[in-house]
């Protein structure tokens, strides 16, 4: 593997490790992230992994472009994929229900799997966290079964409740906070994904693995979930 190193800003490089989204990328991405952190040490300002790339922002007061490239080459020299055991796994309870997942019924019909079939397919796959973005704690998980793949809504909703589980193309995600959003909603999770009160807390990080565990309404409420039915916000 020979990653490309590209300049993207005065103090930022993108390390392009792959050209396609693939679950098999992740052990390499994890290993590369760790090696870059180690190589740059205190000269690293930020590191943003995403699907196929790492964005490295370094401290200009300590390094110039040449030195930064040197560190990157050092970090990637002889890179080996991280062992699967080094990725954390999360079991995330989800109440799959039309009252909190307005697209669940339609997806069941469109896919020919029915609601039960959609839930079954969605909750059996072990997903990977490809990247976090859009909002604090919002994890892009994939890859969703092809029969569940759904294009984003033509008009994004102004307000999606916190905890909502959605599908967009072959990705799935939970909205950590109330926010606008255009993903197809199929359920809701009671789990807190991001907590601003806890310093640096995010339930998951890029490279982690995630499985969804279907739960009933009673369990959802017991776990602190808000079962207020989804309502389209008035314009």
């Amino acid at each position: 593997m020979t990653p490309r190193i590209e300049v993207v800003g005065i103090d930022s490089l993108v390390l392009r490790l792959f050209d396609q989204i693939d679950e098999d990328n992740m052990p390499w991405m994890l290993a590369a992230s760790q090696r870059v952190r180690d190589a740059f040490g205190a000269a690293l300002i930020d590191l943003v992994p995403s699907y196929t790339t790492l964005l490295v922002q370094y401290d200009l007061a300590q390094l110039d472009d040449q030195q930064a490239r040197q560190y990157v080459r050092q970090a990637l020299d002889g890179l080996q994929p991280a062992a699967a055991a080094s990725a954390r796994q999360h079991d995330i309870p989800v109440w799959y229900d039309p009252s909190v997942g307005p697209e669940l019924q339609a997806l069941g019909e469109r896919s020919g799997l029915g609601v039960a079939g959609v839930i079954e397919r969605h909750s059996t796959h072990l997903y990977q966290v490809f990247a976090l973005g859009f909002a604090p704690g919002f994890a892009f998980l994939g890859l969703v079964d092809e029969r569940l793949a759904s294009p984003r809504l033509a008009t994004p909703r102004k307000q999606v409740p916190a905890g909502s589980l959605g599908i967009a193309d072959r990705q799935t995600a939970i909205y950590p906070l109330v926010s606008p959003g255009g993903w197809n909603l199929i359920g809701r999770s009671p789990v807190r994904l991001f907590d601003r009160e806890l310093d640096g807390f995010s339930l998951w990080q890029p490279g982690d693995r995630v499985r969804f565990v279907p739960i009933e309404r009673a369990e959802f409420i017991r776990l602190g979930g808000d079962d207020t039915p989804f309502q389209e916000a008035s314009a």
Binding site: V48, S50, T52, L54
Partner: peptide
């Protein structure tokens, strides 16, 4: 393109 990290001023 496949989403990637974006720097300040991009």
């Amino acid at each position: 393109m496949i989403s990637e990290g974006v720097p300040l001023g991009a």
